[in-house]
């Protein structure tokens, strides 16, 4: 019961932070709200018993990616965004039915999913040897190929980001001109 209360706490925190992400005008505040949201979600993961995912959420998301955003924000003049209107109101109103439609669909999918939910097979193993070990062993055995592919995607993404973000040389600009 306490666990559920903690879950509710983290959930409320995450939702409030997400609302902050969507509503605040200043990008600095938005980043802070995002950070808060990610930490809250990591809390939800811990409550759900997924320690490994929660830890990685904290390490990768809440630290690495958020810092990345901060870095980028220093590279572009975020002051401009503060001065201008930061939201599209028409689109926001128009998108509400779309979001509601998605909600509806998710509910239906969820209901269908409950009907078809398979029986758990790792419950006992998790109780015995802990969640992180089970996840790790499955990840590095059954999903090893996928794991390697993801690492490759990360490498490609890194190279791409460097290529896109680097400063163009002078000769290159002459060519385009």
């Amino acid at each position: 019961m306490v666990r559920f209360l903690i879950f509710l706490l983290f959930s409320a925190w995450a939702i409030v932070s997400a609302v902050g992400v969507v509503t605040f005008a200043n990008p600095i505040y938005v980043i802070l709200w995002l950070l808060s949201c990610l930490i809250a979600i990591a809390g939800i993961f811990f409550v759900a018993g997924a320690e490994l995912v929660g830890a990685l959420q904290l390490l990768i998301y809440a630290v690495a990616i958020a810092v990345f955003y901060v870095f980028v924000l220093t590279a572009v003049p975020w002051e401009k965004a503060v001065k201008k209107d930061s939201h599209y109101r028409t689109e926001g109103i128009l998108s509400l039915p779309v979001v509601l439609l998605l909600y509806l669909e998710m509910i239906i999918v969820f209901l269908l999913g409950v009907v078809a939910s398979p029986e758990g097979k790792f419950r006992e193993a998790m109780a015995k040897i802990g969640n992180a070990e089970v996840v790790g062993s499955v990840l590095f055995t059954k999903y090893f190929f996928a794991f390697e592919v993801v690492s490759l995607v990360l490498l490609i993404g890194m190279i791409g980001a460097v290529l896109i973000g680097r400063k163009e040389s002078q000769t290159y600009e002459d060519d385009t001109g």
């Binding site: 689109e91 128009l94 998108s95 779309v98 979001v99 439609l101 998605l102 669909e105 239906i108 999918v109 269908l112």
Partner: peptide, 15 residues
């Protein structure tokens, strides 16, 4: 918006 709406309609169709 169009992307979301299209996705939503596709899911409707699938459902």
């Amino acid at each position: 918006v169009a992307l979301s709406a299209g996705f939503g309609l596709l899911v409707v169709l699938m459902l």
